[in-house]
Design a protein around this nucleic acid. Sequence first.
DNA 1: TCGGTTCAGAGTATT
DNA 2: TCTGAACCGA
Length: 809
Amino acid sequence: MSSLLAHLNEAQLAAVTLPAEHALILAGAGSGKTRVLTTRLAWLISTGQVSPQGVLAVTFTNKAAREMNARLSAMLPISTRGMWIGTFHGLCNRMLRAHHRDAGLPQAFQILDAQDQLAAIKRLLKTLNVDDERFPPRNLQHFVNGAKEEGLRPGEVDAHDEYSRRCVELYRAYEEQCQREGVVDFAELLLRCHELLERNQLIREHYQRRFRHILVDEFQDTNRLQYRWLGLLAGGGAAVFAVGDDDQSIYAFRGANVGNMAAFEREYRVRSLIRLEQNYRSHGNILNCANTLILNNRSRLGKQLWTDAGDGEPVRVYEALDDRQEAQWLVEEVRGLVREGWARSDLAVLYRSNAQSRVIEHALFSAGLPYRVYGGLRFFERAEVKHALAYLRLLENPADDGAFLRVVNFPARGIGARSLEALQDAARAAGTSLFEATAAVPGAAATRLAAFARLIQDLRAQTARLPLPELVEQVVERSGLAAHYQAEKEGQERLENLRELVNAAAVFLTEEGIGLDLPAALGVSAATEPAQVFALTDGSGNEPLPADVLAAPALTPLAAFLSHASLEAGDNQAGEGVDAVQLMTIHAAKGLEFDAVFVTGLEEGLFPHENAVAGTPRGPGRVTDPGEAGLEEERRLMYVAITRARQRLYLSFAQARMLHGQTRYSMRSRFLDELPEAALKWLTPRMQHRAQPAWSEGYRGAWEGIDPRSRGRAGGAHAGARQTSGSAVRSRGVGADTGRLDEHERRASQRFDRGIPWRVGQGVAHARFGEGVIVAIEGDGEDARVQVDFGRSGTKWLALSVARLEPVG
DNA sequence: TCGGTTCAGAGTATT
DNA sequence: TCTGAACCGA
């Protein structure tokens, strides 16, 4: 016990040992949040206040759930197998499998990932002959998920105009299609589980009695439905221990509702609000920047990070002429750090949007510096893996039309679009699945379709008794996928992934099956006869569930593996252990930390992103992120970026940047000017005004006047960067790139000379909008546009060939 | 059925 | 500028 609580600071200790009551823990970045959560769990169990079965701990990502499991089993001599620790989706999935009859689902229902869902919607629109120009599938997907996350079924959505009424109709049709095919999308997992608990008193009260303690991680990221789901489970008097940080709320755009924190405090009458403010990650100057920046946000619960680690190094700020030079400087800086003995994997380059990585990757690649980019396709999302999974899904559930269509003609079997149309007509007429309709379709296609159906049936019959990995292997072979990729000249990697899928199945059986181990989760042993199950229940001494409520706790290994594949998309890239510079978006960096961090592209329009600031309409009739709220979320994003750094932090921006094929000139980010000057060290001269006299002689003169030593060290002067660029590129033999920077510069200044007499930061007057300041310039000649901030009249893009602007001041 | 061309769109993303 | 999706011709 004493060792469990040792080394906790005062606030952490207070949080861990709170009595069984609702609590809100405001856990700042780097304040030991995970530690508090897991120690709380361990403390509750080891002091006998609750049994492992009486706890529900929920996270957003599998990674976080895994970490909690691992740390808990390291602290306590218990197996976390069967404990209710998992993601919202994972736990809902488990509950729906156990009570599938009451939830109105087949026990082996399949889970659609975002990609599958979009495909299902496209297919729906096609069958209904809906104009997908007027109803873009993506918008509909957004509409459906948005409604579900608000807990709304088609009948409950407010639809005032013709358009939204049509959307609701399509939502209804989509639901019917899913139900018919026995599939469930991500949002449906939560909504269906919520409805199960809401409508079924017996089941609800059972779980309410069972879970005495509910722990929630990243509470600021919960959406409204998740909040209500927690409310149902906690309704029987459980103590809710919510951990979160409103300053790190960066997912409003995908439905997160920070307001849940304040709502929780109010509605649950939280008496214990504990702030974890001591930071164990970063040095003082870095924290000082984070604290000062976030003071500019108005809607906060309030919190100030501190450290006893000392000020450390100043935060370095660098102004580049353009994005390429920014990248070049970064490469030089990374080289310097590596020379000094920093590990590459402890260095991170962060950016606001994925598109920014290209230039940086190019520079790193040319310099021969190993790097690793986060994001992109993950293992279970790869086309070949999805193909194999579609075959497996068909074995488990022949009604899955989506899976059917994905592989009926892959590898090619001469079943073309026309045959499929005939098949779909036949299925619709008979009211059956495509699979069933294969027997009913007339004509020449019939033989081929029948052969495909036979293939699936044979596979099902002949693999039914095989262990999971062998089953997968058989399917990969006999479906023809293996042969197909064998024959393809660039199919080797895909073949490799299919072999990896067999491996993943083997690993799943031995290690990862925990999540869907219903007998263990429900507190019964797998060997128990069904009749006995209901007497045993969950081991917590609660009243048992009646026999007709609890489903037979059996799920085939294949069905379990398929849910696993949908709920956990896997790693995005190999090379985890390699010593490489880490590249990622700021969003992806949340929760991570590095010795040194580069935050790049700190320019107005990019970061804060203009869409977030301006309140751009998104989809028909929808406006999100209006003004202030959007800006505050961007600022929290900056806060997250800053607090990733342990020892050294670099902030950089560029006067000019290639964006959508055009050069764009922007002001430096307002966030830079919200940082405390005393904590900063400018590597380039700090311009007084945020305005950047892009490419002007005066500016270049000032730049070249600074200490040559710091120029060299910083990767330097423009000329220096050019040199480095040239030699590095040449030595790698990518000669075509040599001197691009010069070319770029020449063109840029030419453009500048060719008659755009405007500078970013310059005051202008417009007949209608009044006076304003140019915040960005984009494009060339006839296409040239300027973005002007007119204050109260708003920020506008104006074509220079049209708008009449007068210089002011 | 594939491969080339054309065109629009371009923000962040877990399950 | 670059990408992905849709479309068309052989």
